Simulated scan of single mutants.
Amino acid sequence: MSSPPDLPKFVVWAPDYTDEGVLQRRQALRPSHREKALKLISQGILRVAGGCTTLESIHATAEDKKFVGSCLIFEGENIDVVRKLVEEDMFYKGDVVCVLAAMMDIDTVTLTGSVQWDKEKLVILPIALATSLPPVPS
């Protein structure tokens, strides 16, 4: 199932917050985040996705990588459709704060709004790709 070739593509840069608990939140939310991403990939909506790391983490083991955010490429009718998908992601949503706070045994007051991605710095832009996207998994 692939998207029509004329469907616009959008690149998303979603930087993480930089506070002390950011890595723990990323690890706690990753299973739900990944499950949703795999569904969007199989539908041909999310075409490329990954966590961005520090330069020092290039050769680090998976456990030792230091993430600074996420980069994603979506296909969608318009930027509003893509923005809605991003805002539904576990790394963006604020309504997981109470569950996450309980899991991490922290005060919910220390977390407000987005729990992983910094909403103030998140960027969504149309992208004119010079190369092909990988095929949609069948």
Rank of each mutant, 00 (worst) to 15 (best):
M1P: 13
S2W: 10
S3Q: 09
P4T: 11
L7I: 13
P8K: 14
P8G: 14
F10R: 07
F10D: 08
V11I: 15
V12P: 01
W13P: 03
A14H: 08
A14G: 14
D16I: 00
D16S: 06
V22A: 02
L23T: 15
R26W: 02
Q27N: 06
A28K: 08
A28Y: 04
L29M: 09
P31C: 00
S32G: 14
S32D: 06
S32E: 11
H33F: 05
K39S: 13
K39H: 09
K39V: 15
K39R: 15
L40N: 14
G44V: 05
I45V: 15
R47M: 01
A49R: 05
A49S: 15
G50R: 11
G50F: 13
G50H: 14
G51D: 03
T53R: 05
T54H: 07
E56L: 06
S57E: 12
H59C: 07
E63G: 01
E63Q: 08
D64A: 04
D64G: 05
K65L: 03
F67L: 13
F67M: 07
V68F: 03
V68N: 01
V68P: 04
G69T: 10
S70H: 03
L72C: 08
I73L: 05
F74C: 06
E75G: 12
E75A: 14
G76Q: 00
N78L: 14
D80F: 13
L85Y: 14
E87Y: 03
E88Y: 07
E88Q: 09
M90E: 10
M90R: 11
F91L: 07
Y92H: 08
G94K: 00
G94W: 00
V96L: 11
V96F: 02
C98E: 14
C98L: 14
A101D: 01
A102G: 03
A102C: 06
M104L: 13
D105E: 12
D105V: 02
T108S: 11
V109M: 03
T110M: 11
T110S: 14
L111P: 08
L111I: 15
T112R: 11
S114H: 06
V115W: 02
W117I: 12
D118I: 07
K119A: 15
K119D: 15
E120M: 02
L122G: 12
L122K: 12
V123L: 13
V123R: 06
V123F: 01
I124Y: 00
L125A: 15
L125I: 08
L125K: 13
A128S: 14
A130F: 04
T131F: 10
S132Y: 01
L133P: 06
P134N: 00
P134W: 02
P135W: 02
P137G: 04
P137M: 09
S138K: 13
